[in-house]
């Protein structure tokens, strides 16, 4: 029972969704809307479990004085402080950039700044990854390096100044060999998705059921 019911739900739901794709009728659209409406409801309840998990792990760390337990405060304090500021003390939501409230100030000047910092690190990481990728160790790596140089120069104004062929060749590389490889991967991904979905719908793949799968 523990295994059959979830498998039946998945099978019926999966087949319904396949049929729904081919039926444009309003009843079919209503079924789709009904199914998709469940997602935010499940997400809301799962979020409670998620926050509970995070709280449990970090409170354990603090209680046991595990290694680096001090960092757990850095997780727990903002985790509960922000909802308190937003919901229990709604006045803190007011203001704007000129006269920011506490919530606004914390969001704009702490969270946004930290996220922007993380994202900007990407520029440096791309440079180091490119350096590693473009080392001409073999004939193929040299070919990759040459293609990369042509494409990169073709994207900037100096490339056109060096020669009209540079942007044209860069564009050709992007449009033909690069796009062909991309499409081949996407085609494989499409079939992989189809096979995975069928395996799940027809109960061949049951690992996702966890304890109920066996």
């Amino acid at each position: 029972m523990k295994r059959t019911v979830p498998l039946m739900i998945v099978m019926v739901g999966g087949i319904l969704m396949i049929l729904q794709y081919f039926i444009p009728h309003q009843i079919s659209q209503t079924v789709l809307a009904y199914y998709t409406d469940w997602t935010p409801i499940i997400l809301a309840f799962a979020l409670i479990l998620g926050v509970g998990s995070l709280t449990r792990i970090h409170s354990h760390k603090i209680r046991r004085k595990s290694k680096n337990w001090q960092y757990s405060w850095a997780v727990l304090i903002p985790l509960y402080l922000m909802p308190v500021l937003a919901h229990i003390w709604p006045q803190s939501l007011g203001g704007g950039m000129d006269s920011p409230s506490i919530f606004h100030f914390t969001f704009m000047h702490v969270q946004v700044s930290i996220q922007a910092t993380m994202f900007s690190l990407l520029a440096f990481y791309i440079a180091s990854a490119a350096f590693r990728a473009f080392r001409a160790k073999s004939a193929l790596a040299t070919l990759l390096l040459l293609a990369a140089v042509v494409v990169m120069l073709g994207q900037v104004p100096i490339g056109a100044l060096l020669g009209k062929w540079l942007p044209e060749t860069g564009l050709w590389i992007l449009r033909y060999p690069n796009l062909a490889a991309k499409r081949a991967i996407m085609l494989g991904v499409g079939f992989g998705m189809l096979a995975t979905n069928l395996k799940i719908i027809f109960g061949v793949e049951r690992n996702w059921l966890g304890g109920a799968g066996k």
Binding site: A46, L49, G211
Partner: peptide
Amino acid sequence: PNRDPIVYTVAEEVVKQAYLE
């Protein structure tokens, strides 16, 4: 570590079952 709460609940069950098996 999980980013999505639903994925977290499924991943927890999957790992628990794997240890059991």
